[in-house]
Design a protein around this nucleic acid. Structure first.
Lengths: 114, 114
DNA sequence: ACGATAGGCAACTATTTGGTTGCCTTTAGT
DNA sequence: ACTAAAGGCAACCAAATAGTTGCCTATCGT
């Protein structure tokens, strides 16, 4: 389910963050971004994990909409879904927007000074 | 540990994403961003959760460096640590940037091929 | 036709997580 | 001095997670 029925921005974004919130999965996404669409076997390389573990992680990422896979012959090619990453980026930008880093630095500086 | 010993960007960012990856915590961060520093009791309001649950979530957020709290009198004020949110934003920007570069390369290649 | 390669499904296990309740300490207000 | 408010600590619980192993199916190359 992609939460089309519920318009809760937090709940929706949290799913994406949760998916990215495990080192293994974040590395997977990074690899997919850098290396393009790949098969499970290819993604398992250099991982020290089982093929099934990788498959499970891909499933989790897919459920969050971060990644999408399609069977092609005997292998399945997985690729990143950039719009979901964009969603997460926008959410972060929005909430930390009113809390801009420069303002924060200034405030901290002022508080230190007194 | 804040991973100062290991310079792994993925591991470090994943901690932030994991912290933001629960609806309750993401809402907490959003409230802190919007409403400024607040006490635990204040953050518990309108939550239907226990004070202790909120405290635990704040602890998780603090361990990821997303939030920071200091006791002040009998209450403790919690505030967001914007630099950590910035870290997560930059990571997302970086990896999805690679992706769009790849897309661009692919598009160029396809157009050359026809 | 056959062996190797890629993957799906299911069961099982250990650890983590999200939440609770109960009790104790510190601070504030009167 | 006493009560109420704000938290911290710890034990406990159910559900979710991250990983494994074992086995079965489909497809590719020769």
């Amino acid at each position: 389910m992609t939460a089309t029925s519920r318009p809760d921005p937090a709940e929706d974004s949290a799913a994406v963050f949760a998916a990215l919130g495990a080192t293994t999965r974040l590395r997977l996404v990074a690899r997919l971004c850098a290396g393009g669409p790949q098969s499970i076997a290819s993604l398992t390389g250099g991982t020290r994990l089982t093929r099934q573990a990788i498959a499970k992680h891909l499933r989790v990422l897919a459920d969050a909409g971060v990644v999408r896979g399609a069977r092609r012959g005997r292998e399945s090619r997985w690729e990143v879904e950039p719009s979901r990453l964009g969603l997460a980026r926008r959410y972060l930008a929005r909430i930390s927007g009113q809390w801009s880093e420069r303002l924060e630095a200034l405030r901290r500086h002022v508080e230190e000074a007194r």
